[in-house]
């Protein structure tokens, strides 16, 4: 499979193929790449980003043919290629490794410290309170608390799930950055 970067020309053509507006094309490119990474993760691939990049490169290498012949959502073509790459990886894949141990208390405490900093920096007081309350309790009690938060905010429980998911997505890159700073 192609680990070579596409030529600048091929990459430009790929962006054009994705969208006539360059900014929107860039966004679409990133969106497709992210989704491929997520799918590779669900298929227990260790080097998800590498596999996603290989997929992007393979598609780029076929861009002239695609512009001429392919009809449909480009994202689906990327997926088709990704699946073939995954199948090839499966052939060479060593037997599954034992699952990694859960994070130890030291790691959790480090993350907690970063999490607190990131929450302070990126979230409003209400958001901080909501995120922590959302995680409180266990089992039935947790469901009750979440329903209560949703009622207080006047939104559905699904809207609350989405809201919290978005907040988590804002926090995670900040935490990773913070951890890298600690390690360096």
């Amino acid at each position: 499979m192609s680990k070579q970067f596409p030529s600048k020309e091929a990459f430009e053509k790929l962006l054009c193929w994705l969208h006539s507006d360059r900014d929107q094309a860039g966004e679409k490119y990133e969106k497709i790449r992210l989704r491929l990474i997520r799918i590779f993760s669900c298929r227990s691939c260790p080097d998800t980003e590498d596999l996603a990049d290989q997929t992007m490169n393979v598609v780029s290498s076929r861009i002239d043919w695609l512009i001429e012949n392919y009809k449909g959502d480009p994202a689906l073509y990327f997926y088709g290629v990704a699946k073939k790459i995954w199948l090839e990886v499966q052939k060479k894949k060593p037997p599954p490794e034992p699952p990694p141990p859960p994070p130890d208390i030291y790691e959790i405490e480090q993350r907690c410290s970063c999490l607190e900093q990131c929450m302070e920096r990126h979230l409003s007081g209400t958001e901080r309170d909501m995120v922590l309350r959302y995680q409180e309790k266990t089992k039935q009690e947790k469901i009750k608390v979440r329903k209560q938060i949703a009622t207080e905010l006047g939104i559905s429980i699904n809207a609350l799930r989405i809201r919290v998911c978005h907040i988590h997505a804002r926090l995670r890159p900040c935490i990773e950055q913070c951890l890298q700073l600690i390690e360096s």
Partner: peptide, 21 residues
């Protein structure tokens, strides 16, 4: 999922937020 890098990172994130909460 949990054996992927993303899964491990997400699990550590949930552990941290749980711990804090």
């Amino acid at each position: 999922y949990l054996s992927s890098n993303e899964g491990q990172e997400r699990q550590a994130f949930v552990a941290a937020i749980d711990y804090l909460a």
